[in-house]
Design a protein around this nucleic acid. Structure first.
Length: 431
RNA sequence: UCCGGGUUGGGGUAAUGGCUAUCCUUCAGGCUUGUGGAGCCUGAGACGCGGGUUCGAUUCUCGCACCCGGACCCA
C-alpha cells in the first residue's frame, strides 16, 4: 500500500456526513443573509501570492512549473482570487457585493492539531460598504451559523479588536513607530514571556515607558474608558467605529457573543479595521478557531477602485474540533428509508416497487449481490433501514408482500395493490 | 524546517533475537431452501519501507515515509 500524502486526508462516509452537515449549515445561514456562491480555480499564478506576501511565501506553497512554462501554485487562500474577481467586474457588479464559497486550500506547512496541508474553508466576504453594519452583519451570520450548529454562548466567543485603534494608539506615541511590528508583538503576547514582549515593542520603536502605557491601554474594559485617553482624529474615529459595530451587533441580536479584546491582532498585515477571532470558551482548542475582519485597502492594492471590504473565513478543521469538544458534532449514521428484500424469482415485482419508492423521494436499497434471505436482512440492518419490504414467492401467490418495521421487528402482510398505491408505506399503516 | 512521542490483520491489542505471532472486534460463509441486531462452528486478514549487525531481525541499530502533538508560521 502506498503511503498517503502528508497532511492530506481521506473522508469515509461516516466522516463525510458530519462534514457535509456543517458545511450545509453555514452555507444555508450565509445564503439567508444574501451571500451568493462563487466558484474559483484551484491554481493561480505563483506571482499572485508573491506580490501580496513576498518571495518567502513560495516555500509555504505547493508551487510548480507547468508544461507551458507557467509558474503556478495551488491556492493557499481565497482572498487574492476574490480580489481579482471584484476588480475585473467592478463596474458591472452592484454593491455591496456579497459572496460565499466553500472549498479546499493547500499550504506546505507542518500538520498539527486542526491544521493540515489540504484544508477546507468557507469564506464569506462583503465588498463595497464601509459601514459598521457590514462588519456587524459578518459577525451576525457567523454567530448564527455557530448557534445553528448547536453551539451556545458558553462554548464560543468572538474576541474583537480594531486595527486602527492599535495603530492610532501607537502613532499617538510616535509617528515613526513600526506599527506592523508592534501589532505582531501584541498578537504573540499570550504566548511569550513579558520581557520578550516588551523587547519586541521596543524593537518596533516604543520606549519602555510607552510600551508599558500601551499595554495598560490594551487592557481597558470599555471603549469609553479608552476614548478619554484618545488623542488624534484617527484614534477617536476608530474607537467610535468599533462602538458602532458593537451597537449594530446588538441590534442583530449577537452582541452577547462578542467581547472587546484589543490584544487580539491576527497575524496579517492587510486588516484595516475590525478584526475578530473565534475562541473555544471551554479552552480545549488553544489557538483561534477561525477569524475575520475588515480589509479596506486590499482591492485597491490589486488595482481596483478603493473598495471597503469585510469578511470571515471558517476553517473547517478547527471548527470540527470545537464542535466535537462541545459535543455537537453532527453524528450522521447511515440512514435508509427502505430495503426491498427479494426471495426467489421476484425481481420484476421488487424492482417495480423499488423504483416507485425512489420516485417518491425515498432512499431505497435492494439486493444487487444475489444474497440469501439472512444476509439480506443483515445488510438491511447494517445500513439502518427503517422498513423492510419482503417480496417473496410465497406471499406473491396471494398477491401480497410483507412489510416489516426494523426497530420493533414487527411485520404483517399487505396486498400488492396497496403497496403499489402507497407513496410511503409503513408497518404501522397496515398493522 | 526544527523538537518530542508513535507505527503489529479493516479497527483495537499481546508477546517475542529462532516453533504455526496472542486476544477482542470486524468481514465472509455455515448451523437455518423465508427473518437481522443473540449463540455456536468454519474461514479470511498484520509485524510501515529500505539498509546494517547476526547463522537467524517483527524484536537491536541507522535512514526514510506516514501518524499524533509542539515550536516557527498562520496570508
Amino acid at each position: 500500500m502506498d503511503d498517503p500524502i502528508k497532511g492530506f486526508r481521506d473522508f469515509y462516509p461516516d466522516e463525510m456526513g458530519p462534514r457535509r452537515a456543517v458545511i450545509d449549515t453555514i452555507e444555508a445561514v450565509s445564503r439567508r443573509y444574501g451571500y451568493r456562491e462563487i466558484g474559483t480555480p484551484a491554481l493561480e499564478p505563483t506571482q499572485l501570492y508573491i506580490d501580496k506576501s513576498g518571495e518567502e511565501i513560495v516555500e509555504e506553497l505547493y508551487s510548480f512549473t507547468d508544461q507551458g512554462g507557467r509558474e503556478l501554485a495551488l491556492t493557499p487562500e481565497l482572498t487574492p482570487t476574490v480580489a481579482r474577481m471584484v476588480v475585473a467586474k467592478q463596474q458591472a457588479l452592484s454593491k455591496p457585493i456579497k459572496w460565499r464559497s466553500t472549498r479546499p486550500f493547500w499550504r506546505y506547512e507542518e500538520p498539527q492539531q486542526g491544521r493540515f496541508r489540504e484544508f477546507y474553508q468557507t469564506n464569506v466576504d462583503c465588498f463595497g460598504s464601509a459601514e459598521p453594519m457590514a462588519d456587524a452583519e459578518i459577525l451576525a451570520l457567523t454567530a448564527n451559523s455557530l448557534t445553528a450548529l448547536g453551539l451556545d454562548r458558553e462554548s464560543f466567543e468572538f474576541r474583537i479588536s480594531h486595527r486602527d485603534i492599535l495603530g492610532g494608539l501607537l502613532e499617538s506615541f510616535d509617528a515613526d513607530v513600526d506599527v506592523g511590528g508592534a501589532i505582531r508583538a501584541v498578537d504573540k503576547r499570550e504566548k511569550i514571556d513579558l520581557a520578550t514582549y516588551y523587547e519586541l515593542l521596543e524593537d518596533s520603536g516604543l520606549t519602555t515607558e510607552q510600551a508599558s502605557t500601551f499595554d495598560e491601554l490594551l487592557a481597558v474594559e470599555s471603549l469609553d474608558e479608552l476614548l478619554e485617553y484618545a488623542e488624534g482624529d484617527r484614534l477617536r474615529s476608530a474607537i467610535t467605529n468599533l462602538q458602532d459595530v458593537f451597537a449594530n451587533a446588538e441590534e442583530l441580536g449577537v452582541r452577547q457573543y462578542c467581547s472587546l479584546s484589543l490584544d487580539t491582532a491576527r497575524g496579517l498585515d492587510y486588516y484595516t479595521g475590525t478584526v475578530f477571532e473565534c475562541f473555544d470558551s471551554t479552552g480545549s482548542v488553544s489557538r483561534a478557531v477561525f477569524g475575520g475582519g475588515r480589509y479596506d485597502e486590499l482591492i485597491e492594492g490589486y488595482g481596483g477602485q478603493p473598495t471597503p471590504a469585510v469578511g470571515v473565513a471558517f476553517g473547517h478543521a478547527t471548527l470540527a474540533l470545537l464542535l466535537d469538544n462541545a459535543g455537537v458534532l453532527p453524528d450522521e449514521s447511515l440512514q435508509t428509508d427502505y430495503y426491498v428484500l427479494t426471495v426467489g424469482e421476484t425481481r420484476a415485482v421488487a424492482t417495480e416497487i423499488v423504483q416507485s419508492l425512489r420516485k417518491n423521494g425515498h432512499v431505497v436499497e435492494t439486493d444487487i449481490a444475489d444474497r440469501s434471505f439472512g444476509s439480506q436482512m443483515g445488510y438491511a440492518d447494517s445500513i439502518g433501514a427503517e422498513t423492510v419490504i419482503i417480496v417473496g414467492e410465497r406471499d406473491l401467490e396471494n398477491d401480497e408482500v410483507t412489510i416489516k418495521a426494523m426497530d420493533s421487528g414487527e411485520q404483517t402482510t399487505v396486498p400488492l395493490a396497496a403497496i403499489r398505491e402507497d407513496t410511503s408505506p409503513t408497518y404501522d399503516d397496515y398493522a
